[in-house]
Design a protein around this nucleic acid. Sequence first.
DNA 1: CGCTCCACCTGAACGC
DNA 2: TGCGTTCAGGTGGAGC
Length: 272
Amino acid sequence: MPELPEIETIRRGLIQTQGQKIQKILRSDKKMRINSNLDLSALEDKKINSIARRARYLIINFDKNYSLIIHLGMSGRLVIKDSSTYQIQKHDHFISYLDNGKCLVLNDPRRFGFVDLIYSSEIKNYKTLSYLGCEPLSDEFNPDYLLQKLKNKSTNIKTTMMDNKIVVGVGNIYINESLFNSRISPLRSAKSLKKSEIKKLVFAIKKILTKAIEQGGSSINDYVDSAGNLGNFQNNFLVYGRNQAKCSACSDNIIKITQNGRSSFYCQSCQN
DNA sequence: CGCTCCACCTGAACGC
DNA sequence: TGCGTTCAGGTGGAGC
């Protein structure tokens, strides 16, 4: 499901739970991608202090040195509901009832996501987070940084930019859109990009992710925000999912190809 | 080490 | 209607 704009939209929606205490935790018996380090029931009676995000991971910090790492995989939703009317639905795997009559529900049909409870003091040692590259909307992600990362990469630029060790949160939708915006072919090898092209790509990624956050993310099949509402950025797609549609910049048609097992959409005339 | 492929899952869409 | 195939916003490990 979600790339950076979707997760950031959810994070912002969860801020309203700050200050709430967890009354009760329910967990389905289905396995998620990983098992939690600590028993999730330890969260009962703990207070939510802050909601953070790193890459596509949400980090909910509680008092008493507890932090919950949440990943939504491809199909996960995290929605705040009214406890009084909430009924458990298929694929609801993690439910936390809050003091204020609301509950936070994680629904994930494919179960590629996970919830992992750890001690807050262990976040800096959390392996999955330690490997990550920089945030795309930070100043650290700039043309000089990207040039260094790309200069020895023979893989195509599209796949390379989806590598979380280089830059995080840029998934299949937003790299397709960003390459179109910067007029770069997804087939180019990463190291073949000139400095001027890298500059265009960096700014395209920042611009598109920023706009997508403003629009509340992109909804295709699964994504909704923490209030259950759809995003709007899918209406701004210029190439993603538009196989055989007319390119918005020329008279040619968008085409779909497969690169490293993922679909790519691009205009052969505009992107070189 | 760098790179590609594939498993992990369910469900929706589509062809026959 | 039904059954088989393919594909989907991600990630990390196996294998070359």
